[in-house]
Design a protein around this nucleic acid. Structure first.
Lengths: 266, 266
DNA sequence: ACCTGAACACCGTTCAAGT
DNA sequence: ACCTGAACACCGTTCAAGT
């Protein structure tokens, strides 16, 4: 146990979360609180224990401090959750070593939309318990559409499509269509991830028999149960993304040749 | 005030919610609690005060009862929320007078998917504060995909498409594509509804100036701000639904003629 | 049979007090 | 300057007691 304080009467389960080694490879508590350290701690906590378990008091404990100390750096719980969302989304703009999804090194708008989609998906799968927060927190502005929750991101989206030949209307319509595609797919994907583990958590007295009997009233469900249980999320994501790109391309070319009204593509 | 109890020292704001006349046109408290009455009260409460405001104690008060009384009919808060979701979704199957969206009187699978989409959208817009719950509550089974959260609904979905000529694989793939389309669109639509009202709620010292200055760093945002603020949700929903139906139709016909593998449409 | 009062453990948040 | 102890109002939930 590195540099442990002498009066260590804290919950060992919570302390363990944070006195290990974090993602960046540094010790998590080399003295001194910090807004960023708190947000990072909150992300780690949610990843480890789920969103419902996050309280100010427990977060404080996991950082080796009383809950009250957090209020010096964070106005309150709501603001903290907003900060968590921001922090996780900003990950898009940091370039990992050998990152072939780095969003700012794109070649054309199609490549940009591919990188963006895969980038957000990577975030969702890396933090499945945080993603529902990204999906449903009330946005700062009415036109900030989850999961694309960053002015910088929306700006680069619109800029890239405009450079690619989209009119302002078409770029905005594309932004809308793209964000709802991403939100639907990724939220369902992380929801299903959560459902898988919660099933393993409750091994109660033969739940199989009970569930099967219920299904007997639903012949189509019963017949396709195997198919329904297959997880094809990755392939479906690729297909839907590709389909969306095709659709956008079609709109773009129609606009360039016939100059018809194209705002209503979404 | 009809049939008021004599010792009326309750919060008048909460009482007002429930001693009025409810959707069905009946007095809300003609004696006696009931699981269904509680769930209905919870829906009304969330519609009126938002999800965050719903506590067992306040819900009890709105029903003219102490919180503890609820536990005779509802195992706990989590189960209550599940019940709320079920109740709201079941609305699909009740036929209102002159209801042209009634899902069981469909003509062919395209008509069915239109009725279903518009029906769920009507629910989302009628209960925008409840819909995030419909979207993100952990499903009962891994293959229950929000917002289509009802065995009965999934059964009728698969049955209708199968009757329409879809193979089991194609029907399941259609179910997946359709649910993620619905979830993305409707969750974004109700989120934006929430964002609109929350902006009106906080008329602080000239927030305009501050926000505009932030935007000046984002030229594309600044230029398209008007376009971004337009609400075209209804038209976008129709377009996306139509596009999805076209896609499914294409898959169906390809399968009927060439007999190629079609499972990966989603 | 149905509801309530009192109680328990836990929340978010404030603030004077400690170091 | 930074953290804590004590306190407040509020939670979900249990259970013996009332009617």
């Amino acid at each position: 146990m590195p540099t442990a304080t002498s009066d260590d009467d804290r919950d060992p389960d919570l302390v363990a979360v944070n006195e290990g080694v974090d993602v960046a490879g540094e010790l998590t508590r080399p003295g001194g609180l910090d807004r960023e350290r708190i947000l990072r701690g909150a992300v780690d906590f949610i990843d480890a224990h789920g969103l419902a378990a996050l309280t100010m008091r427990r977060l404080g404990a996991s950082l080796g401090v009383e809950a009250m100390a957090l209020y010096r750096y964070v106005p309150g719980r709501e603001d903290l959750l907003d900060g968590v969302v921001d922090m996780v989304v900003e990950t898009l703009f940091v370039k990992d070593d050998g990152d072939d999804l780095y969003i700012e090194e794109h070649h054309g708008w199609q490549d940009y939309l591919m990188r963006l989609g895969h980038g957000i998906r990577r975030i969702a799968l890396a933090h499945p318990s945080v993603f529902p927060l990204v999906a449903s927190r009330p946005p700062a502005a009415p036109w900030v559409r989850p999961p694309l929750r960053s002015l910088r991101l929306v700006e680069s989206f619109l800029g890239t499509l405009t450079e690619g030949g989209f009119s302002d209307q078409a770029a905005v319509a594309a932004y809308r269509a793209y964000s709802s595609f991403l939100l639907g797919h990724l939220l369902l994907e992380v929801t299903q991830l959560g459902a898988q583990v919660s099933l393993l958590d409750q091994p109660e007295g033969d739940p199989e028999a009970q569930r099967k009997t219920d299904l007997s009233v639903f012949p189509n469900l019963l017949r396709t149960e195997q198919l329904l249980s297959l997880d094809k999320s990755a392939a479906e994501f690729e297909d839907a993304l590709e389909n969306l790109l095709d659709r956008l391309e079609r709109v773009l070319h129609e606009a360039q040749t016939s100059d018809g009204e194209v705002a209503d593509l979404a």
